[in-house]
Amino acid sequence: MAKAAAPDVAPTPRHQHLIVTVYGLYARHQDGTFAIADLVQLLGDLGVEAAGVRSSVSRLKKRGVLVSVKRGSSAAYKLSPELEDVFSAGDERIFAPRRADKDDAWLLASFSVPETQRHLRHKLRSILTRIGCGQVSPGLWIAPGNLAPDVEHQLQRAGLMEYVELFRATHLTGGHLDEKVGQWWDLPSLEALYTDFIARHQPVLSRWEDHEEEAGPAERLKQAFVDYVPMVTQWRRLPYMDPGLPEEYLPENWHGLAAQELFTRLHEHLGPKAHEYALSIVGSPAKSAEPAVTTV
């Protein structure tokens, strides 16, 4: 049986991905808008040159992720209003993911696309893979039942629900379901992504726990931002590729569990400090709210 593919080990975050993370975390609490000068400063702290910021913003504008606006006499960009529901839906998936229980129902997605519209098959498969579904056969995909609202929302947003039937199901066949899970999802590739995340960011947590008081307050806030944004950028796609399978069906010593714990600790430790620093550049702490970001 075919497996839903996962990408290779994550590269260093691209400039566009960092910008989307910064907007998702902080801009929605500033009416979704950043002055370009503020964005250049924040991305400069992350090692991105001003020319790279402007070039990446231009690409995001062409993709419809950002739109240009006037902020006083300055140029500024804001998130496209059409993406607000995407970011909102991503908040829970990224910051409060749910792992299914062994006795939960499964979601089955069966689709059939006319030969004259075969290009839609690739689009359907890409969406199902990106949201964490596994492939049972070319036209039948599976996911834990709690992903049903996300799957339906993504398919409706793409205008593809007319080709898909969704079912809640219970596994009745005998045998070891964990073996089937290993056929339906490419768990080794996902494991490699989690292993890479731990390798990159466990030293960050250790450094903060061991040496947090060595820098002054302002330096700590800035360093928290510098450490936090790339961490969230690497992490934010993983909860979508990982369907949140029951622990009983996962390989022994599955690194996804340790990676989730590491992300949670870093988010709790660095998130408030990074948020305070970002708002010191772009706005008032009085406008602060819970961070939010998604997978655009």
Rank of each mutant, 00 (worst) to 15 (best):
A109L: 10
S112T: 06
R118P: 00
R121G: 05
L128V: 07
V136T: 03
R125F: 02
W106S: 02
I127L: 15
G132Y: 03
S137T: 09
R121P: 01
R118A: 14
G134W: 01
I131D: 05
P138I: 06
I131Y: 09
L107T: 14
T116M: 08
R130E: 11
V136G: 09
R121C: 04
R121M: 06
V113L: 00
R118I: 02
L128F: 12
I131Q: 01
Q117L: 11
I131K: 00
A109T: 13
C133T: 12
I127V: 11
G132E: 06
F111Q: 05
L120S: 00
I131G: 00
S126Y: 08
L128Y: 01
Q117T: 06
L128K: 05
Q135N: 13
F111R: 14
I131P: 00
S137M: 12
T116L: 08
E115H: 09
A109K: 08
L124H: 03
H122P: 00
E115C: 04
F111C: 05
S110F: 13
V113S: 04
L108H: 10
L108M: 15
L124F: 13
V136Y: 11
R121Q: 10
V136D: 04
P114M: 02
P114A: 11
P138M: 06
W106Y: 13
R118S: 13
S112K: 06
L128T: 05
H122I: 12
S126V: 01
S126C: 02
L107W: 07
R125A: 11
L108I: 15
Q117V: 07
S126M: 04
G132L: 00
V136R: 06
P138W: 05
G134R: 08
Q135H: 06
R118E: 03
T129Q: 08
